[in-house]
Nucleic acid binder design. Structure first.
Length: 543
RNA sequence: GCGCCCGUAGCUCAGGUGGAUAGAGCAUCUGCCUUCUAAGCAGAGGGUCGUAGGUUCGAGUCCUACCGGGCGCGCCA
C-alpha cells in the first residue's frame, strides 16, 4: 500500500523535475482520523531544499499525481503542507479477502528473505532454578525469535550454558555440604555459597540414591549432580512456557575443544593481552574502555569474559547473517569488551545486535518485592507461573518496552477479569469463535464467497483498516526487535472488534450481509490468533 | 565520582526514523444486558510530557547542563 503511494509520489516528483530519493518519502498513519488514512510530509521536507512554500509544493504535487481512483478516494493538502490521503473504503474492505486467503500465515513478511539469524537468550547459570525476574528475558527472547521468523528469517534459538567456572564449583560445594549435613555431619554452610532450599533437595536425592556411599566423594561429583538437576529444572520451566531452544551450547566445550587457548594466542599475537601480577589482561583501554580487564586470573582460570569472547567468536564463525544477544542490564558492561575482542580477531560484528532489558520489580499491594539471586527463598519463575498462569506471564513480560524498568503488578496479573489486559485479547478471540459457532448453528454457509462491498459501516471499515496494518507491524517490530508493539497493536485490534460487535449485529436475516460480517470476523480471528502466537499466548475458543 | 537506561494523567505505561488538538489500561464517577459471550460498549473528570536553556517552519521525540530513580564500574557471572 505504502509502496504503491511511494511509487506514485516519486513519479509525480519526477514530473515536476524534483529529484528526491524514493525511500525517503515518508508516509505515516495520522493520529486524527480526519487526516485520512495516510499522510506525507514530503512537501515540508522539500520546502527546505527547494526554498519555497511547502503548501504550494503540496498543491503542485497533488496536481501531478496519478492515482487509481478505485483505491484512493481523496488527496488533499492540509495544515502547513501535509498531504492527506484517504483510501476508498470499498477498496480497504475488499482487501479483507487477502487476510482470509493467507489465514494462519497472515502477517508474514519477507524482509528476512530466508537469511539466517541466531538468537541467544536465557543463558542463566545452571546454579539454581530460574527466578521470577528471569521471566522477562525468557519471554522477550522467545517473542523476538518468533517475530524474526514471521519476518522471514531462518532462526536458530540458542542457550549459552555457563557450566564452567567458580560458580559451578560453589554449587558443587554447596550440595556437598548439604549432603554431609543430611548424613549427620557437623559441617557449616560457608559464606558465598548457594543457600536455596533446592540445594537440600539435590542433596536429598543423592542420599536417596547412594545412601552414605558418597561421604568421601570429591566436589566434582556433587557439581555434576547439581548441574544436571538445575539443567533439568530450567528446561522444565522453559517447557511450561513453551520456550524451546535448538542449541544448548555448553561453556565447557570451549575448554575441551581448545577454543579458549586459541583466542588467547590470537590476541597475544596482536599484542592485545599481557601478563601482570600473575594474571593475563586484555587491553580494553585500546578500545575505549576505562580500564583493562582480566581475562585469566592468577589462579589460571579464565574470568567469564574470555569464554564469552570465545563463544561469540564461535557464533560469528558459524556465519549467521544476524546475531542477537539478549542481556539483562546488569550485564551491559561486558558487551563492549567482548565485541572489541572479537573485532580484534578480524571478525565482523556489524551484524551483532544486543537487546538490553532493564530489571523487573514485582509489586504487590503497592509494595515492591525485591528479588535477590542468592538469598535462601527465591520467588522462582515456576512460582510465578503457578501464581498467575503462563499466558499472563508471557504477556506481562513482553508488553512493555525492554529498555524500561518493568513493574510487574502481581495483583493485576492474578486478576482473572476484565481488569487484566491479557483477557481483553483472549476474550475478543473467544467471542469470535463463539460467534462463528452460533452462525453455523443458524445455518450460515461459511464457505460462501462474501460480498465484502457490503461492509460499509464505519466500525467495519475501521476494523478492516486496522487488520491490514498487521504485516507492517510485524515488519517494524522485527526490525526494531520490539515485541511490545505487537501487544499494543493487538489491543487496538480487540478494541476495534468489540466496537464493531457492539454496533453491528452480525448474524441476521440478511444472508449476504451476515456472510460478509462473518468474513470480517474470521479475518479478525486470524489476526488476533497470529499475533498471540508471536507472543506464545493461547487463543481460546471459549472463556 | 564515571558509564548505560529511565522520568508523560492519582498508579502502570504507549507515543516508527522530529509533525497537525499528547493517548491507553487501572483507579474514580455516569449511562447501556427480553436480542450473536457485559471478561464488552459509550461518556466524564484528571497533564506546565522532571527543570532550565538550545537546534528549526515545527520538539514528548534531537543537543547541552542540572534534578530525581534504576543498573553497572570484581582476578563473581
Amino acid at each position: 500500500m505504502v509502496e504503491y503511494l511511494r511509487t506514485a509520489f516519486h513519479d509525480a516528483l519526477k514530473k515536476l523535475g524534483i529529484d528526491f530519493p524514493k525511500e525517503e518519502i515518508q508516509f505515516e498513519i495520522p493520529k486524527q482520523v480526519q487526516h485520512g488514512d495516510f499522510a506525507t510530509n514530503v512537501a515540508l521536507q522539500l520546502a527546505r531544499l527547494e526554498k519555497s512554500n511547502p503548501r504550494e509544493i503540496a498543491e503542485r504535487l497533488i496536481e501531478a499525481l496519478e492515482l487509481d481512483p478505485a483505491m484512493v478516494s481523496t488527496v488533499e493538502p492540509a495544515g502547513p503542507g501535509f498531504i492527506n490521503i484517504r483510501m476508498n473504503p470499498g477498496y480497504v474492505v475488499s482487501r479483507v479477502s487477502e487476510i482470509l486467503e493467507t489465514g494462519e500465515a497472515f502477517g508474514n513478511v519477507d524482509t528476512g528473505r530466508g537469511r539466517s539469524a541466531n538468537v541467544e537468550w536465557v543463558s542463566a547459570n545452571p546454579t539454581g532454578p530460574l527466578h521470577a525476574g528471569h521471566g522477562r528475558q525468557v519471554c522477550l527472547g522467545a517473542a523476538i525469535s518468533n517475530l524474526l521468523e514471521w519476518a522471514g528469517w531462518k532462526v536458530t534459538r540458542e542457550y549459552y550454558f555457563n557450566n564452567a567456572g567458580v560458580q559451578m564449583q560453589n554449587l558443587g560445594r554447596s550440595v556437598q555440604i548439604r549432603y554431609l549435613q543430611a548424613l549427620g555431619e557437623e559441617v557449616e554452610m560457608e559464606k558465598g555459597l548457594y543457600n536455596g532450599e533446592y540445594i537440600k533437595d539435590i542433596a536429598a536425592e543423592i542420599k536417596e540414591e547412594f545412601g552414605e556411599a558418597k561421604r568421601n566423594e570429591s566436589i566434582d561429583f556433587f557439581r555434576k549432580r547439581g548441574e544436571e538437576w538445575c539443567f533439568a529444572r530450567i528446561k522444565k520451566t522453559l517447557e511450561r512456557l513453551e520456550v524451546h531452544h535448538d542449541i544448548f551450547f555448553n561453556e565447557d566445550t570451549l575448554y575441551k575443544d581448545g577454543k579458549i587457548d586459541e583466542v588467547l594466542s590470537l590476541l597475544r599475537e596482536k599484542g592485545l593481552v599481557y601478563d601482570r601480577e600473575g594474571a593475563v589482561w586484555f587491553r580494553s583501554t585500546k578500545f575505549g574502555a576505562e580500564k583493562d580487564r582480566v581475562f585469566v586470573k592468577s589462579t589460571g582460570e579464565p574470568t567469564y569474559r574470555l569464554p564469552d569472547v570465545a563463544y561469540h567468536r564461535e557464533k560469528i564463525l558459524r556465519g549467521y547473517d544476524l546475531v542477537i544477544d539478549i542481556f539483562g542490564a546488569d550485564h551491559i558492561a561486558t558487551i563492549p569488551d567482548v565485541l572489541a575482542a572479537v573485532r580484534a580477531m578480524d571478525l565482523p560484528t556489524d551484524h551483532v545486535r544486543v537487546v538490553i532489558h532493564q530489571m523487573v520489580s514485582f509489586v504487590e499491594g503497592g509494595e515492591t518485592v525485591k528479588m535477590s539471586k542468592r538469598s535462601a527463598n527465591v520467588y522462582s519463575l515456576d512460582d510465578l507461573i503457578d501464581d498467575v498462569g503462563a499466558d499472563v506471564v508471557k504477556y506481562f513480560f513482553v508488553m512493555r518496552a525492554a529498555n524500561t524498568h518493568l513493574d510487574f503488578d502481581l495483583e493485576l496479573a492474578r486478576e482473572q477479569s476484565e481488569k487484566n489486559p491479557v483477557y481483553y485479547l483472549q476474550y475478543a478471540h473467544a467471542r469470535i469463535a463463539s460467534l462463528i459457532r452460533f452462525a453455523e448453528s443458524e445455518g450460515v454457509d461459511l464457505e460462501a464467497a462474501p460480498d465484502l462491498a457490503l461492509l460499509t459501516h464505519e466500525a467495519e471499515i475501521t476494523l478492516a483498516r486496522k487488520l491490514l496494518d498487521f504485516p507492517g507491524v510485524v515488519d517494524d517490530c522485527a526490525e526494531s526487535l520490539e515485541p511490545h508493539r505487537v501487544c499494543n497493536f493487538l489491543q487496538d485490534v480487540a478494541t476495534a472488534f468489540h466496537k464493531f460487535y457492539q454496533e453491528c449485529r452480525i448474524v441476521t436475516e440478511n444472508q449476504a450481509l451476515t456472510t460478509a460480517r462473518i468474513a470480517l470476523c474470521r479475518a479478525t480471528r486470524y489476526t488476533i490468533a497470529n499475533g498471540l502466537s508471536i507472543l506464545g499466548i493461547t487463543a481460546p475458543e471459549s472463556m
